[in-house]
């Protein structure tokens, strides 16, 4: 398989002023693959996703999506192809827009017809009741807000999804629905994902491979099978796996 990876990251560094937050990381994700990113709080996971999405200007290295090198500016086609679900769903939803408006906006920006049917389907896909459609974010529960964020990311049919803790605000039954939905979309549309989660069971469920970060660096990349079997080389990974198994009891 000499196929071009969908996402290629080479020697990426990110600075915020004088702090060096992401240090020389490299990885690639094949089309249709889901790649996991785990590691301790503050290790740089969200920063990696935000930088790929074009939200952090201060980076060096090479990044490419679908074979195209990413520059400092992203065009409209990029924003249709690549969608991100943010860790903090409240902050990412406009407080004065109803759910209907939030979902209609990407359709208008990208000139996609059929808004009515698409919005109804998107709500259904993330198991939101129709009554939620004309509410404002503050009138929804935490898990309902996160589902709006996921619906918004999916509504314009992206080919790459960057998911930052997409299910940590969801209850286990909605989490199961969202994880099943992501598996289905991956099969139906060859969706490529990078998934950040602190929940190793969620990572193992969706990802073929994952990278473990610590202090801005990738300390190891391992497969789902190695993760489940506890065959990790780095001590940080070993600790995380041991704690997960302990919690599963």
């Amino acid at each position: 398989m000499s196929q071009l990876p969908m996402i290629a990251i080479e020697h990426l560094d990110v600075h915020f002023g004088s702090s060096h937050v992401v240090r020389d990381i490299s990885f690639s994700v094949a089309a249709g693959e889901t790649f996991g990113l785990v590691g301790e709080s503050g290790s740089g996971k969200s920063t990696v996703l935000r930088t790929i999405a074009g939200l952090n200007p201060g980076w060096d290295g090479r990044m490419a999506v679908a074979g195209q090198n990413l520059g400092p500016r992203r065009d409209r086609a990029f924003f249709r192809r690549v969608q991100m679900v943010f860790q903090d769903p409240y902050g990412s939803l406009h407080p004065r827009q109803t759910v209907d408006r939030i979902l209609a906006e990407p359709l208008e920006v990208h000139g996609i017809a059929d808004a009515e049917a698409r919005i109804a389907r998107a709500l259904e896909e993330v198991a939101l009741p129709h009554t939620a459609r004309f509410r404002y974010p503050h009138q929804l529960s935490g898990g309902q807000r996160q589902r709006v964020a996921i619906a918004r990311a999916l509504i314009a049919d992206p080919s790459v999804l960057l998911l930052d803790e997409p299910t940590s605000a969801l209850d286990v039954s909605v989490q199961a629905e969202v994880l099943n939905l992501l598996s289905d979309l991956r099969e139906a549309r060859q969706l490529t994902c990078i998934l950040v989660s602190h929940n190793l069971a969620v990572i193992a469920h969706l990802c073929e491979r994952l990278a473990v970060m610590q202090g801005g660096r990738i300390v190891e990349i391992l497969s789902e099978a190695e993760l489940r079997a506890g065959r990790a080389k780095h001590s940080h990974t070993q600790d995380l796996i041991a704690l997960s198994y302990e919690l599963e009891g």
Binding site: V172, R228, I241
Partner: peptide, 17 residues
């Protein structure tokens, strides 16, 4: 609720809802 959680030890293709 208990049954629909993914698990690190057991692999399942689909999660029950």
């Amino acid at each position: 609720l208990l049954d629909c959680m993914p698990s690190l030890s057991k692999k399942r293709a689909r999660l029950p809802t």
